[in-house]
Design a protein around this nucleic acid. Structure first.
Length: 332
DNA sequence: GGCATTTGACCGCC
DNA sequence: GGCGGTCAAATGCC
């Protein structure tokens, strides 16, 4: 189940293609048929709930494939600067192998409104509960901004292999808040039980880590105008360490009038229910991630975070997109 | 002095 | 040879 959801999220974050959209649509239709069968069996509440979640995730994937930015997250390939980081193939002899890098890479996006570039960059990209040490910087071909390389400060002390790469997105040049794409590699062995990368995918599902998961997190501002959604494949307790996620953070000193860091909170289920999901503008301070409540229904241990009205919405959306047969069962 | 950062050089893959 | 990732000496900061 978790693997399914993560895969769907991964699909959803890639650029839409007719082929992939069709595949997702077909998968969605199959899930719908399964749902219809399960609904016919009154004693199958568990499977029904799971199927509902599958349908929701398909809907989200389809919506993204067709440019409906439900999660407010841009394509991470573009965000990383023409996708170079995605194409990482060689781990080099001294570093991560290609396999290990791909196995555990997790990405997230962090934005921060203008101002002191260096300070903001650090503020926006370093507050993830881990102590990082910069060990390199590299200009990336066809990318306007350099890529920064960090490793866990406890690499020497504890042999911690966790590393991360930070690169400013070129997509947001025209905005006041630069967006940083953070890619995590390896695991934090310095703090047993905590792994900034692995946290993204549901714990214990090794398969999930065999390919970079594409998680999307967006945040709403309580002040309005900020919409939000989160695709969160792990429990809320792990929220602070989620990576391969997208979120934007706007430091308080650069926040628009009336916004303060304390108000920058991740959206909750209620946020999503109340507002249409199109884009995020006011992200939380990373430290606030610790208090995040995951709101995507994908992997929340049997708890669907979407109401059925939302399912209908996605159903209608998919139908409007012309991808799906209209006879698949969307429960109301 | 200790630590983190910077930056040119090096390595390995394609 | 180009490229991305890492190393390690030099440098800066506290």
């Amino acid at each position: 189940m978790a693997l399914t959801m993560v895969s769907l999220a991964a699909i959803a974050d890639r650029k839409p293609t007719a082929a992939s959209a069709q595949l997702v649509a077909e998968g969605r239709e199959s899930a719908a048929r399964l749902y219809a069968l399960l609904v016919g069996s009154s004693a199958l509440h568990g499977p029904v709930g799971l199927t509902e979640q599958i349908l929701l995730c398909f809907d989200r994937a389809l919506a993204k494939l067709h440019g409906v930015n439900l999660a407010g997250a841009e394509d991470d390939d573009d965000a990383a600067g023409n996708g170079n980081s995605r194409k990482r193939k060689s781990g080099r002899g001294r570093g991560l192998t290609a396999a290990s890098a791909a196995a555990s890479s997790k990405r997230m996006r962090v934005s921060s409104a203008g101002g002191n570039g260096a300070r903001i960059e650090r503020k926006a990209t370093m507050d993830d509960k881990f102590l990082w040490r910069k060990y390199g910087q590299k200009d990336i071909k066809n990318s306007k901004y350099p890529r920064f390389y960090y490793r866990c400060s406890y690499k020497d002390d504890h042999g911690c292999t966790a590393t991360k790469q930070v690169q400013q997105s070129e997509d947001d040049d025209d905005t006041a808040s630069p967006v940083y794409v953070i890619t995590y590699f390896g695991e934090h062995t310095c703090r047993p039980g905590i792994d900034a990368a692995a946290m993204v995918v549901d714990g214990g599902e090794e398969e999930d880590q065999l390919s970079p998961a594409q998680m999307v997190i967006s945040f709403a501002s309580s002040g309005g105008g900020g919409d939000a959604s989160v695709s969160w494949p792990c429990s809320g307790d792990d929220a602070q360490n989620n990576s391969e996620t997208s979120h934007e953070s706007r430091p308080p000193d650069q926040a628009p009038a009336g916004e303060e860091e304390e108000r920058l909170r991740p959206c909750t289920t209620a946020d999503v229910s109340d507002e249409p999901i199109m884009d995020q503008s006011t992200p939380p301070a990373p430290e606030l991630l610790a208090d995040l409540k995951p709101m995507d229904g994908c992997l929340l241990d049997g708890e669907s975070l979407f109401g059925m009205d939302e399912l209908v919405y996605f159903h209608e959306l998919s139908a409007a997109l012309g991808l799906l047969d209209r006879d698949w069962a969307a429960p109301v």
